[in-house]
């Protein structure tokens, strides 16, 4: 096997895994935010992200 195939599949697999995971995380966040009725200024607006209930 040549180096090129392995090097490029290594990079491609890494990129694919990271992008897939990131997409899943962001989508899940959106879906949950929609269900909870939290707008764009929801959890993300609090930099610590931990205490959104204090703003309610």
């Amino acid at each position: 096997m040549t180096w090129a195939a392995n090097v490029f599949s290594g990079y491609a697999l890494t990129a694919l895994a990271v992008v897939t995971y990131a997409t899943w995380v962001v989508r899940r966040g959106r879906a949950l935010g929609r269900d909870l009725g939290i707008g764009p200024a929801g959890v993300g607006a609090d930099p610590s992200g931990s205490h959104p209930e204090t703003s309610q």
């Binding site: 990271v18 995971y21 990131a22 995380v25 962001v26 899940r28 966040g29 949950l32 935010g33 269900d35 909870l36 939290i38 959890v43 993300g44 992200g49 931990s50 959104p52 209930e53």
Partner: peptide
């Protein structure tokens, strides 16, 4: 950097999951 970015979002998703459970 990329791990940090995903991590922050993931953390917030976990927080949202808890909120959804409470709701």
């Amino acid at each position: 950097l990329i791990a940090l970015w995903i991590g922050i979002h993931r953390y917030r998703v976990l927080r949202l999951e808890e909120l959804a459970e409470e709701a």
